[in-house]
Design a protein around this nucleic acid. Structure first.
Lengths: 232, 232
DNA sequence: GACTGTGAAGTAGTTCACAGCT
DNA sequence: AGCTGTGAACTACTTCACAGTC
């Protein structure tokens, strides 16, 4: 055997030790979303079948996901919603508060700063940065816009977890570099460009054009794969 | 053989007839983004290796994607950038203009309406709708905000391709229903909730909380899978 | 009777590895 | 020498299918 084995990427939960695959992690966040919607209706249990239908996956997948997480259901009944919410939140690391900063106080940066969903789950917006001197000092979403050079100071005082890049494409790499220098390991990039970062930094992209283009593909005569499959 | 075979989901290009997988389609849009960035620097060719590094995938994957598309490179040299851009655009259906409408003229809806990237590729924002009478008639992104009931009229006059939902969660399903009723088959949902739609409608989600939670998972001690792999 | 838990089977997607051009 | 094109091998992910439990 010459190739290195996959590193033991595991999630430990009680006595169960399992690997959470990337698709599974993405779905966990979606389950959580649906479950929170459901508890508003005072539901106490859900079946894998019901969740599966709501998010458009196979029910076996749902059970496998929960099983990988180490969450147990009750046969003949389903899963306890409160318990699921707790376990999902824990697995996603939402039990500890995450601080978020925004780079760029333009249209998008302001819209993000005004997003009211942050405190709900454990996200806390702590600062908004920009390079434009005319913007610095103005307020967006109740926070003062600061110059990027203040990032370093802020880092010294508290841990920063997630950086969102909402600058124009041309400044995105510089923004990313500042974030990385500030010790941030998770970046959500809204700028319409790809950025590079060290291997220990997770970068996710939200690119409107890319999304529109993918939709464009499927609207030009090509059926969506999983919908074709679900029809079978 | 008892199970139905996968339907012949193919993309026809010249004499080559190939299947484009869902991951491939998503990557095509990203290649296009990077290539457009590159042509600004007057590059005429790219190797699979270079593209691969830029977007963080394996170079074999890049070659396979182009091969599935029916795009040929030149051995010893690479792929012609202009040709690639052309073929990618064509495959993604960008050669014909797509009309886009926005549901919801709040913070997010306005930010989207002000996005300047639409005309670049073939997307054309044609209308913004809201249910709030105080918003109807005001202008966002150079367009008048219309009442949802006008959607039907608009549909009669021209084809609408893509609907973006930027309403609060509670109104998202209703917005989706209006879009579907208006004959739209592609929806990009920004509202923090899941929506249901007929099987012949493609729905993609951009959910800030979900993205933040996924990042949260990877920042709580778990390395990103593909980064682990790339290290090997 | 309903729904979970999970080996086993199946399928899709990725990566290897190397022959074949330029 | 450099980089593509592609069968073959591999790995990851999904789905089947059914025994097990409530």
């Amino acid at each position: 055997l010459t190739r290195p084995l996959t590193l033991p990427f595991v999630f430990v939960k009680g006595s169960a030790t399992r690997r959470l695959s990337e698709p599974t992690v993405s779905r966990l966040a979606v389950y959580l979303r649906v479950l929170l919607d459901m508890t508003k209706q005072r539901r106490t249990t859900v079946s894998s079948e019901e969740l599966a239908e709501k998010i458009g996956v196979n029910h076996n997948t749902v059970r496998r996901d929960f099983w990988s997480l180490g969450v147990l259901g009750i046969r003949g009944v389903g899963y306890n919603t409160d318990n699921l919410i707790l376990e999902l939140s824990q697995a996603l690391g939402l039990s500890q508060e995450r601080s978020v900063v925004i780079m760029g106080a333009g249209n998008l940066g302001s819209a993000l700063a005004n997003y009211r969903g942050f405190p709900d789950r454990g996200f806390r917006l702590v600062a908004v940065f920009d390079v434009d001197p005319t913007k610095i000092g103005t307020h967006v979403g109740g926070l003062p816009v600061r110059g990027v050079e203040e990032l370093a100071t802020l880092v010294r005082n508290r841990d920063l977890h997630i950086g969102m890049i909402a600058t124009p494409a041309a400044q995105a790499q510089a923004a990313a570099d500042s974030l990385v220098e500030g010790g941030i390991h998770s970046i959500l990039n809204f700028a319409p460009t790809r950025i590079s970062a060290p291997a220990d930094v997770s970068v996710r992209y939200i690119d409107l054009s890319v999304e529109l283009q993918i939709l464009s593909f499927y609207s030009s005569g090509q059926p969506r794969r999983n919908q074709v499959k679900e029809r079978a």
